[in-house]
Simulated scan of single mutants.
Amino acid sequence: MSIDLTDEQKAFAEAIDDFCRREAGTREQRGDSPHHPGLYRRMADLGWLGVTVPDEYGGSGAGMVDTCLFLERVAYGQAPVAGFTTSAIVAAAVERSGTGEQKKTVLGGLVAGRVFAIAMSEPEAGSDVANLSCRAVRTDDGWIVDGQKTWCSNAHIADAILLVARSSGSPGDHHGLTMLLVPTDTPGLRISGIETMGGKEVNDLYFTGLRLPADAVVGTRDNGWQQLMAGLNVERLILAALMLGTAQRAFDDALGFIRQRRQFGRPVGSFQALRHRVADLATEIECCRLLVHRVATLVDRDPARVLPRESSMVKLKTTEVARQVALAGMQMMGGYGYACEYDMERHVRATLAATVYGGTSEIQRDIIGKTYGL
């Protein structure tokens, strides 16, 4: 399948590239944080954060092809706007299942430059999402939430968190999960950052007698599992598009280095071992680009259709290739690939984590195998 972008899409990509060169072209401009609020707001002012938000909430109402194009170019340009990823996932969930007021808050908030996070994982429930035990108890006038969540990306910079909690049944049951929208300034919520290789990007969340109104429910009570499954296409495509852009950037950085670096009297890229490695990596990246575009096109044709096989394939393939490219880039650059003076070490950190969050590569393979009746 060929990738045929419209003139408008080409102009959109060129505008993002130009913005990233001007606003995030140096390490000093990007800073050390994965999210730069000022840069994020400037993208909001340009209308880019609402790429997939319906026009009635201030967005442009584009589809997943345009969203993936935006994510790919932002990742390639290394723009520190990590808050968009989780915000787009939350916005998609609220658009599918939320009330009119929730849509105004979240979809309109995303367009305006606000950040949202989603909380699913727990100390004893990562890949096994059905094992959630953080509990939301119904009261006469609302809900009381108690429990812990972990690995929650961007909670520390978010306006609100889409919480997936157990409202009935026992850990292990797919039925009995409910989505609740929790403003981060709600009493009873404590957010604690987790130190990682990438800095403070993820958090532990502690809920202690947190009270929410009855209308905090997103969708229907006890139906959170089905609502989560309906969002798999969007979540996995978002992660794949980000890693496609990162893979291409790591490839281009490595290629530029080996063209210039000389050993034994000639550029190291002229040696067959590196030429062949470059050829293999370039081919793998192009396969990923075709796969991302193909799955995004399928989603745009029928947004209600769940694509468990295709969405797992695109997440698996693109994150694994991105990791392969970054590690190969570090190897080709030698000690320079490990030095903080160059961006390759950042690419390595980002791509290693990408094969874990959003469903590990092992889980994706298991899902794909099951779609073949295994």
Rank of each mutant, 00 (worst) to 15 (best):
E8V: 13
E8R: 15
Q9C: 09
Q9T: 14
Q9P: 04
F12S: 03
I16C: 06
D18W: 07
D18H: 15
E23P: 03
Q29F: 08
S33M: 14
S33D: 15
H35T: 01
H35F: 07
H35Q: 09
G38Q: 11
R41M: 13
R41W: 13
R41N: 11
G47M: 09
L49R: 02
G50K: 02
G50E: 06
T52N: 12
V53D: 04
P54R: 08
E56V: 12
S60L: 13
M64P: 00
V65T: 15
L69D: 02
P80N: 10
V81Q: 03
T86L: 12
S87W: 04
I89P: 00
V90P: 02
E95D: 12
G98R: 01
K103V: 06
K104W: 06
G109T: 06
A112G: 08
F116H: 03
S121D: 14
E122F: 03
P123Q: 06
D128P: 00
A130T: 11
L132I: 04
S133C: 12
R138V: 06
D141P: 05
G142L: 07
G142F: 03
V145W: 01
D146I: 03
D146S: 13
G147F: 03
Q148I: 14
K149Y: 01
W151I: 04
C152K: 00
N154L: 05
I157E: 03
D159Y: 01
L162V: 00
L162W: 01
R166N: 06
S168G: 08
G169L: 07
G169N: 08
P171C: 09
G172D: 06
H174W: 13
H175C: 09
H175V: 12
L180R: 00
P183Y: 11
P183D: 10
P183Q: 10
I191M: 03
G193H: 09
I194V: 15
I194Q: 14
T196S: 14
V202H: 08
V202C: 03
D204P: 03
L210Y: 00
L210S: 00
P213S: 07
D215P: 03
A216T: 02
N223Y: 09
L228M: 14
A230Y: 05
L232Q: 11
N233F: 04
N233A: 08
I238E: 02
I238W: 01
L239G: 08
Q248M: 13
A250G: 04
A254M: 14
A254C: 15
L255Y: 08
L255Q: 11
G256P: 08
G256T: 05
I258L: 10
P267G: 08
P267S: 09
G269H: 03
G269V: 02
A273T: 15
A273C: 10
R275H: 09
A279W: 05
D280R: 15
L281T: 05
C287Q: 14
R289K: 14
L291H: 07
R294N: 10
T297M: 05
R301I: 05
D302Q: 13
A304E: 11
V306L: 12
P308M: 11
L316G: 02
E320P: 01
V321L: 02
A322L: 00
Q324Y: 10
V325L: 07
Q331T: 12
Q331I: 10
G335F: 12
Y336M: 15
Y336F: 15
G337T: 08
E341D: 15
D343N: 13
M344G: 04
E345F: 11
H347K: 04
V356M: 07
G358Y: 01
G358T: 06
I363K: 09
R365N: 09
T371L: 10
Y372S: 12
G373Y: 04
G373W: 06
L374G: 06
